[in-house]
Each structure stands twice: as structure tokens, then as C-alpha cells.
């Protein structure tokens, strides 16, 4: 176990240079984008150039780029991500506020993707080259190819506008938004903690469409992976050994093949998470989900340098922590892996 801890610690140490490089790249890219934050803040309002210059000086944008970079980096290493230009609030505070919303969406999206992708993938593999398999493969390709925002909009139109089964957007409905008192910020968890069935229903209803959108968009890749991995596993000698014992096909698949097939899938799962975060950006925008991703989009639109930098680092950290967890999961599934 101490090996495990040491491994985790070393992995976290490795993220430091990664964050540093990422920050540098983002810092440079964002500054070559056309448009500047101060003009964006005032928009079309007639503001004197002096005021703008004053504002620029306030954020240090009048200094040479290297100096700005130095100031920013040293701030980051002190845990200060600066204040948003658009809203003047500290970026970190904003991120912490919005983070739970993104986690909740990502987790439920992942859940949908895992359940849908894994089951369809495994089903397709056990029925390889039969009609079920062909159908599932078409579904996988479709889910992979359909743009996330289009899917989200369709869901909104069908289930919210036409059928009126589910709310169009947001995390909470009507009066609930004022009465519900979050604890962790993960509303599903909060509703359970507060033993508030009414709220739980409302939260889940709001979560359903975004999670489904994000999940389905991620299902294709995961499903194809699962199918391939399962097919390969079913071809392994130990599966033949299991069959040779006289075990039924269901036991062979569930007990002998499934866990082995999971091993390569788990790897991809971690990497997939980055893709999922990309999907989350669009999903949050479509469903006005108050998460980090939609914050990032708005900050980019406003050329809010400080906020963009902070969000990107935050998301990157999140992804690497997820990847670390995935790596550690390995040793649970595969007895050959020991840290």
C-alpha cells in the first residue's frame, strides 16, 4: 500500500511541470487572439481612452509581456489565480463555486456512457457479425459522429419543448432555486443529504438531458473500444480453457472475459475523460449549466485572460487527477499490476 501512496505522490509531482507548460502555452495563445479584454468589458459603450488605459494599467496589461508572465506565474504558485476582468471576482473562488456542477455533469455523463457503451460493446462482441452487432455498430458510429450541441438541442426540442417531460435548462427549477440549500454543490448528493425527495426529483430531472447528451456523445468511442477489447478477450486461450471446463457461455463471458476486457478499456477511459470535458463545454453551453466549461466559454468570448488561464489549469488538473484514479483502479482489476 505504501507503494501505492508513493506512486500517487510521484504522479502528482509530475503534474507540476505539466501545469507549468500548459500555463505558458495558454498565456501565449490567448494573447495572440484578436481583441482585448478591456474593450470587451465596455463593449459598445462610449468610454474615454484614458479610462481604458487606466484599467489596463490596473491589470498590468501595459507592462511588457514577459513581466506580465512573471507576475502571473508567481501568483499561481502562491495559489492566486488573479481576478476576473469581466466580473472582478477572484477566479479561484468562481471556479470552486462552479466546479461541483461540472463534476456532477461529468460523472453522470460518464455513467451513461459507461453503461451504454460497455453493455452495447460487450453485447456486440458476443454476437459478432450477427444483426445485433451490425445494429450496435451503426449506433456507435452515429453517436460518435453526431455533434454534441445538435444532439442537445434535439433533446431540448423533443423532451422539453414538445413533450414537456423535462426542463429545458439549468440545474434547478423555479422556486427550488431559491429554497434549495446546497452542502457540497453536488446537488444530487445534497438532496440526498438533506433527505429532500422533492428536490432530488427536480435535480435529477434537470440533470437527465445534459447527462444523456454528454453520455451518448461519449458512448460511441467507448462502445467501439469495448467491442474490440471483448472480441480480443473472447479469443484468448483462457476463455477456451473456461469453455473446456463445461462452463455455460454466460459464465464464461461474465466471469472470465469481462474483467480482462475491462483492462484496456480502463486505460482509454482515462484518456476519454479529456474528450468528455470537451463535450462538457458544449453541453453546458446548450443547457445553460453553471459549470466551469460554460464559464470558460464566456471568458474566452470576453477575452478574459485571467479567467481563461485559471479555468484551463483547473480542468487540466481535474483530468490528471481522474487519470491518476484510473491508473490506481488498475491494480484492483488486474492482479499483475502492483505499485
Amino acid at each position: 500500500m505504501s507503494g501505492l501512496l508513493r506512486y500517487a505522490f510521484q504522479r502528482l509531482l509530475l503534474t507540476i511541470p505539466m501545469i507549468f507548460i500548459l500555463l505558458t502555452v495558454i498565456f501565449l495563445i490567448i494573447r495572440v487572439m484578436p481583441g482585448d479584454p478591456i474593450s470587451m468589458v465596455y463593449g459598445a459603450r462610449p468610454v474615454s481612452e484614458e479610462l481604458k488605459a487606466e484599467k489596463r494599467a490596473e491589470y498590468g496589461f501595459d507592462k511588457p509581456i514577459l513581466v506580465q508572465y512573471g507576475v502571473y506565474i508567481s501568483g499561481v504558485f502562491r495559489g492566486d489565480f488573479g481576478n476576473s476582468i469581466r466580473t472582478s471576482t477572484p477566479v479561484l473562488q468562481e471556479l470552486f463555486l462552479r466546479f461541483p456542477a461540472t463534476i456532477e455533469l461529468a460523472l453522470f455523463g460518464l455513467l451513461v456512457a459507461a453503461i451504454l457503451g460497455f453493455t452495447t460493446g460487450v453485447l456486440a462482441a458476443t454476437r459478432a457479425d450477427r444483426p445485433v452487432d451490425h445494429g450496435i455498430r451503426v449506433f456507435h458510429i452515429a453517436s460518435f459522429a453526431i455533434p454534441v450541441f445538435w444532439l442537445g438541442l434535439m433533446f431540448q426540442v423533443i423532451f422539453a419543448v414538445k413533450l414537456k417531460w423535462l426542463p429545458v435548462a439549468g440545474r434547478l427549477g423555479g422556486e427550488m432555486a431559491f429554497t434549495f440549500r446546497p452542502v457540497t454543490g453536488l446537488y444530487v448528493l445534497d438532496a440526498i443529504l438533506r433527505l429532500d425527495g422533492h428536490a432530488l426529483l427536480d435535480v435529477l430531472q434537470h440533470l437527465a438531458l445534459p447527462a444523456l447528451t454528454l453520455g451518448i456523445a461519449t458512448t460511441g468511442l467507448l462502445g467501439r473500444m469495448s467491442r474490440a477489447s471483448m472480441l480480443e478477450t473472447l479469443d484468448q486461450d483462457y476463455v477456451t480453457t473456461a469453455r473446456a471446463k463445461g462452463l455455460g457461455e454466460r459464465v464464461v463471458v461474465l466471469r472470465h472475459a469481462l474483467r480482462n476486457a475491462l483492462i484496456p478499456i480502463v486505460t482509454v477511459f482515462g484518456l476519454e475523460f479529456a474528450v468528455l470535458m470537451g463535450g462538457a463545454v458544449l453541453t453546458e453551453t446548450v443547457f445553460s449549466w453553471p459549470g466551469i466549461a460554460s464559464y470558460l466559454i464566456r471568458s474566452i468570448n470576453a477575452r478574459d485572460y485571467i479567467a481563461v488561464q485559471g479555468s484551463v489549469v483547473f480542468i487540466a488538473l481535474f483530468i490528471s487527477v481522474i487519470n491518476l484514479i484510473v491508473d490506481l483502479l488498475y491494480s484492483l482489476i488486474d492482479p499483475r499490476v502492483r505499485y
Partner: peptide, 18 residues
């Protein structure tokens, strides 16, 4: 597996690793 049993060529891959 009961009345007729079989063993295979590759000892490295014929047992389930997990």
C-alpha cells in the same frame, strides 16, 4: 471438463490472469 478434459499448449495464456 468432467468426463473429457483438455489441456492446452500455452501455459502462459491458458489460465485466466485475473
Amino acid at each position: 471438463g468432467n468426463e473429457i478434459a483438455m489441456i492446452f499448449q500455452e501455459p502462459m495464456t491458458s489460465l485466466n490472469p485475473v
